[in-house]
Design a protein around this nucleic acid. Structure first.
Lengths: 167, 167
DNA sequence: TCTTGACCCCGGAGTGGCTACAGGGTTTTT
DNA sequence: AAAAACCCTGTAGCCACTCCGGGGTCAAGA
């Protein structure tokens, strides 16, 4: 089958299929005389597997590792366990902070009803107040969620000695 | 204050601050004779605001819009409402699919205990079976979640006429 | 026969929100 | 004086695609 048919069969965009090939996730198929890719059932199966893992939000690197384990059926299965465990922990952590986040946004949303100028908007006021460290509906307990924080408090460990000296 | 002090005060990496300046989110400060950026309290406030919005997982484009609304206090506040509403809906949708995903992963994890070769691993078996369209703990109801799907079934609307013809 | 239009190819750039250099200069501390 | 810490610019990398331009191929319809 050609790339379009494979895409149809698996629900994957042909461009994504080519991308998977480029990064070495899907083996390059043979080519027909005209240069078109010719896929067989093995490709279909493999791509469906990738797709399913992606549906479980696994990063492609993890999918790659699972595929390698599949190709070597005698290896220890603990690697699979660990991979799933790690991924699950990751997902659960994300879930937790997302729940907190949704609560915060709901409360924030409750600050404003009706039409008035932004100068009187409870939402903006709240956001500004929070930014200035005052209490905020978003941070009832006084600390911010770490959801989607660009980088949790300075993961980069370049030793900071100098104390903050306001200019 | 210099960029490092501002970063300390807000918990933002100096490189991120420069990035915000580059994309026009944070106004460029004056420079000292040596070329160093010199920030004042207004910058601190603005950056803290950005940071707080980011903690609520808002995309920078939304933060940009909120900042503009803040700068024009006479505008209608409905824009703020809509922005928050949209964002909240987005977050809630994500939350739902993440919950489904976590359940699926938990069930998948339950398929494998103990040490054996990957050939006998219940997790891998399950994933392969699912990929082949068979019933799967992950997809009890027979349909896949759409969480993190690269692209929900072909959003691209290039009309497909030719029928799938297995090679 | 010609044209249309669906399909295929490739390479490269763009997305968001940073992060990580490289390669230099300046300031402060030891 | 030397070392460490800080600052600058500019560029490239990350993830998982997505989109685009510019072209080739192939079957069906007028």
């Amino acid at each position: 089958m050609r790339i379009g048919a494979l895409g149809q069969a698996t629900g994957v965009d042909p461009e994504t299929i080519r991308y998977y090939e480029r990064i070495g996730l899907l083996p390059a198929p043979v080519r027909r005389a005209n240069g078109y890719r010719a896929y067989g059932p093995a490709h279909l199966e493999r791509l469906a597997f990738i797709r399913h893992c992606r549906a479980l939000d696994m990063p492609l690197a993890d999918v790659q590792r699972l595929l390698r384990l599949l190709d070597h059926p005698l290896d220890d299965c603990q690697d699979v366990d660990r991979l799933i465990d790690t991924h699950l922990a990751h997902v659960q952590g994300k879930l937790q902070s997302l729940q907190t986040l949704a609560r915060q946004l709901e409360q924030l949303r409750g600050r404003c009803h009706g039409q008035h100028a932004t100068a009187e908007c409870g939402i903006l006021h709240e956001l500004v107040a929070a930014a200035q460290g005052e209490s905020c509906v978003c941070h009832v307990d006084g600390r911010a969620s770490d959801w989607a924080m660009p980088t949790a408090p300075h993961p980069r460990i370049h030793k900071i000695k100098r104390v903050l000296s306001p200019e």
